[in-house]
Amino acid sequence: MTETTATNGALLKEQVASLLVQPLEAASVVLAAGPKIFESSEPLRIPRVVSGASVGWVGESQLIPDADVQFDEINLMPSSLKSIKTLIRFSNELARQSVVGLDAVLRQRLVTDVANKLDDALLAGTGADNTVRGLLNHSGSPVSVLDTAEPDSLLDAMAVASANEITPTHWLLSGADFYALSKIKDADGRYLISPDLTAEGKRTLFGIPCIVTNKLAAGKAALVDFTNVAVVRDLQPSVTVLSERYADYDEQAIRVVTRYDLGLLHPQAVTVLNAA
């Protein structure tokens, strides 16, 4: 028997992946930067080492001293964490009369809406009211000063990361701050920050790739090692076609429900820059 939306309102896992999950990985600023992604719909506890073992020199046949390693853990995807949800209604006339395929339009709209909401949370979420705590709001992250009139402030942030044994993978900057820095010239009128001529459209600051996003407010930036950023993605995001809920209006709807959470495997993985 042929599967249709009438007999199969909830899309199959493979369909959800192609409709939402894979495009979202490309559209989301944070997900596209390459964090470690864990799949889980249940609470997830990730252990991390607080302090390593004390290693010393030991002679032949001498007793090797015991070493203590301190652990703690980050708890992600608690059962109380709220979901990202959206509902798109459309008339059956629109579905029949659309010149452009309605499924393609809705897919783009769904991915855009979810990516915007998700990035707002993953970047600057406060964790209030059972929501996600974003990159900029984790305790233990070092703080530096952002001065868009002085590129040395970026080097100061890099020095902070280096002192914490962190190798940053990306800058995160607002468009206003990035282009303010890009305008700075030396005494001979040459730009201090030059684009990478070998990679068209690639933005770098002092050799570190730069992600420009207006989901960050001007005067707020971050220097991030995304290899130490953990994102937990609900194992079963759902996309459901509601063909009967709005039958009285001769309409259909698509409902999307998904959950994400974020934590730092190393608290110093993010250096937060604030305007002076």
Rank of each mutant, 00 (worst) to 15 (best):
A159T: 15
S139Q: 13
R259F: 07
F178M: 02
D66K: 12
D72V: 03
K185E: 15
A128C: 06
P43G: 05
D66A: 14
L106T: 05
S243A: 14
E3K: 11
Y246E: 09
V16Y: 10
A26G: 06
D113H: 00
A218Q: 14
D156M: 08
S18Y: 05
G207A: 08
L181F: 14
L19C: 11
V49C: 12
P151A: 11
D72N: 14
F38L: 12
L235S: 15
L205E: 01
P142V: 05
V257K: 09
L20G: 02
T169Y: 10
E93Y: 05
H138F: 14
I254L: 13
T169N: 13
R48M: 12
M77T: 10
A95L: 12
A124M: 01
A157H: 01
L192N: 07
R203Y: 12
A222K: 01
I74C: 11
I88R: 05
A159R: 12
V212Q: 12
I84H: 02
N137R: 07
A176R: 05
P195R: 07
P35H: 00
L81Q: 15
F178C: 01
Q97P: 01
I211M: 06
L110T: 11
S162Y: 07
L24W: 00
Q268D: 15
E3G: 02
L20V: 01
R259D: 02
L31T: 04
E93C: 01
T148M: 12
V21L: 10
E251F: 01
G201S: 08
V257L: 09
E251Q: 13
I193D: 04
V256C: 09
D72F: 00
V69G: 05
V69F: 07
V229N: 03
D177F: 11
D120I: 00
I166D: 07
I46G: 01
S80M: 03
S162P: 00
R109T: 15
A176S: 12
I211A: 06
A104K: 08
L155R: 15
G52S: 12
G219P: 09
K117E: 14
K85T: 14
L31K: 02
C210R: 09
V21R: 08
A221F: 04
E39S: 14
L118T: 03
A217R: 07
L24E: 00
L12R: 13
G52Y: 06
A221W: 05
A149M: 11
M158P: 03
V99C: 00
A115E: 02
N164P: 02
D119H: 02
M158A: 07
P65M: 00
F71R: 08
K36M: 08
I84P: 02
G59T: 07
A67V: 06
S182L: 10
K185P: 12
L172P: 11
V99W: 00
S18R: 13
T227S: 15
Q62T: 10
T204F: 05
A161R: 05
N228F: 13
G201Q: 06
L136M: 11
D72Q: 09
Q97W: 02
T5D: 09
L87A: 00
